[in-house]
Simulated assay, not measured.
Amino acid sequence: MTPSNDEMVVILTGANEGIGYHMLTALAEDDHRIAALDINGDNVRDVRSDSVGQVRYYKCDVTDTEAVDTTVSEIIDRWGRIDILVNNAGIVRVGSFQECSMADIRNEFEVNFFGYQRMIRAVLPHMRAQGSGIIHNMGSGTADTGHPGLSGYSATKGAIKALVLSLQLELRHTGVSCTLMIPPSTNTQMTADIEYPEWMTVEPEEVGRKLADKIHSTRPVITPDRTTRIGLSLTRRFPSLWRRMTAGVVGNTE
């Protein structure tokens, strides 16, 4: 029997700001129980004060395996189950390939790829034991198109896409689903250094709330709306269009 919203437990990483924060507020309004993970919890605590018993903040660095395992164990001890994981934590280093050091790229992979892996490894045994669960992973259109000035970030998202495709095959008979959530270009602090024209970006509140509405979806690829889905399809089919759209958006990266 599928549990109701107020019985389900959602783990959301990167919950303190941007898309993650607005997913958190929307899920709290829908009476989900949410374990909100981030290294900073100032904004999460405000949501928690309005949703006593529903939202709990866990200070957790997804680059720390021990911290991830301990946090997931604490969530299980408190609520007894994990129904949905949203791997949303992410960082980006904006700059040309030559400007970005190997340490920069490793740091992006530690958060954006290995951080996702750590979370999946920690929750998957519990989901398989209960015979159900959904693992959402925040992807990006840059996994298919690339992006000037975002070579490291794009590479992490390409790795996430390949990981999700593999897990979808491995988990297809287990009751556990694995998805890619792909937002449009979003006006967050993480993308503040990218000089997108205003028409190319969407506010994080709109994106977060739309993705929260699809938290129970098990579709292989989830977008917040039809516009994003069409945009992704066009940029994949017509790469020259994407090259023109991104020309100069991060300044001179030559």
Rank of each mutant, 00 (worst) to 15 (best):
R33L: 13
S51K: 15
R33S: 12
R45K: 14
T65A: 14
G53D: 01
D30S: 14
D38C: 09
E29T: 06
D30N: 11
T65V: 08
A36D: 00
T25I: 11
D42T: 05
A35V: 13
D38E: 00
Y57N: 01
I39T: 08
K59L: 04
I34T: 07
Y58Q: 00
V52A: 12
N40Y: 05
A35L: 15
D61K: 06
V52M: 13
R33P: 15
G53Y: 11
D42M: 10
D31L: 13
I39W: 10
N40F: 07
D61I: 13
V52E: 15
R45N: 10
A36I: 02
D46K: 15
V62W: 08
A28G: 04
D64H: 03
D30C: 13
A26E: 07
I39V: 07
T63W: 15
A28F: 10
D50V: 09
D64F: 05
D42E: 04
T25Q: 04
V55W: 00
D64Q: 03
L24N: 03
D31S: 10
C60E: 01
V44F: 11
R45A: 08
D42V: 07
V55R: 00
I34Y: 10
H32A: 06
G41Y: 10
T25H: 04
D50K: 13
V55L: 01
L37W: 09
A26I: 08
L37N: 00
L27R: 00
R45V: 08
D64R: 02
T25G: 02
D61W: 04
V55C: 01
L27I: 02
E29G: 03
V47D: 03
T65S: 15
A26H: 14
R45L: 14
D50Y: 05
G53I: 04
D64L: 06
R56M: 06
E29P: 09
L37D: 00
E29F: 13
I34R: 02
D38Y: 05
D50Q: 14
R56I: 07
I39A: 09
D46I: 12
V55Q: 00
V62T: 13
V55S: 00
I39S: 05
T63P: 04
D46H: 15
A35E: 01
H32S: 06
G53P: 04
D31A: 08
G53L: 10
Y57F: 12
V62K: 07
S49D: 14
V55M: 00
V62H: 10
C60K: 09
D46W: 15
I39D: 03
V62S: 10
L24I: 03
R48E: 12
S49I: 12
D46C: 11
V52C: 13
N43S: 04
N40I: 09
N40L: 09
D31P: 02
